[in-house]
Design a protein around this nucleic acid. Structure first.
Length: 266
DNA sequence: ATGGTCGCCGAGCGA
């Protein structure tokens, strides 16, 4: 089973390149982020015509996540726990998390489409929100381990894990994506027992998933911020991982992110 | 140096 994540930066603006990529790459499951539409605006029919079931957790103008799957999806659940309880002072109405269980040929895999907060400017309340959100993700990720299932938590984490995941690390020193606290939040999830699948198979660095619209693609001034974190049961089934960087240079209006994928025996 | 470009949607915000 091929499982991919892609921040499309508006699913409507990216519909044609998305359909072209799906036909070429043939993923079985896709997690989309920044769809930037409400559920009713999601181009469901276009994806269904390629054989995908759709699950959507949308929002007007900003954020929004979705899952596409060629296999049946069950237990579709939007939102991270802990975001809608006024008693704890947290009220999170951003559409940033969608989870589902996929029934493959030889077993299930639990997947989540994740759009973690950007957190800029640093420091400030948006950075505090980022760290609080990542802590909620950690707590939920920990609870999922108890199920002892293959789990793939994938999406735009808005975190550059290490220096080697940026072409020009010094340029990011004052950025929320590169703060030690952000990197520690990601490591804390990995330390529970999750594996950064791409890093595990490509430890050398220099591979990026995002290039800004200010000419960074032409200079390969990229960063790796889109990640697939695999539970132990998923890591046991991991057979490959890649980044489809050609998508950044293809077509008239590419997303600033490209798809990152894993191949698993499920 | 601190803008450059996108996409939202119809002004400025978010990235």
């Amino acid at each position: 089973m091929k499982i991919a994540t892609w921040n499309v930066n508006s699913v409507k603006a990216r519909l044609e390149p998305a359909l072209a990529w799906l036909k070429q790459a043939q993923p079985d499951v896709v997690a989309l982020q920044e769809i930037k539409t409400v559920d009713e605006g999601f181009p469901r029919e276009a994806f269904e015509s390629l054989g995908y079931a759709c699950a959507v957790h949308g929002q007007k103008s900003y954020n929004g996540v979705a899952l596409l799957s060629k296999y049946p999806m069950e237990d579709v659940t939007p939102r991270l726990p802990g975001g809608d309880a006024p008693s704890n002072g947290i009220s999170d109405d951003h559409a940033r998390y969608l989870e589902a269980v996929i029934s493959g040929k030889s077993g299930i895999v639990r997947v989540a489409s994740i759009y973690a907060p950007n957190g800029n400017p640093w420091p400030g309340p948006k950075f505090d929100y980022k760290l609080a959100w990542l802590e909620r993700l950690r707590v939920h990720a920990k609870s999922l381990l108890a199920l002892e299932e293959p789990v793939v938590l994938m999406g735009d984490y808005n975190i550059i894990p290490q220096d080697k995941d940026a072409r020009n690390p010094k340029a990011w020193l004052k950025d929320a994506l590169f703060q030690p606290e952000s990197q520690a939040a990601l490591r804390r999830i990995e330390n529970l027992g999750y594996t950064d699948a791409f890093r595990a198979l490509h430890p050398e660095g220099g591979h990026y998933s995002f290039w800004d619209y200010f000419g960074s693609w032409e200079r390969d001034n990229g960063i790796r911020i889109d990640h697939l974190l695999l539970s132990p049961q998923a890591t046991d089934r991991l057979t490959g991982s890649g980044i489809d960087r050609d998508v950044r240079g293809a077509g008239e209006k590419p997303s600033d992110h490209v798809p990152v994928w894993v191949e698993m025996t499920v």
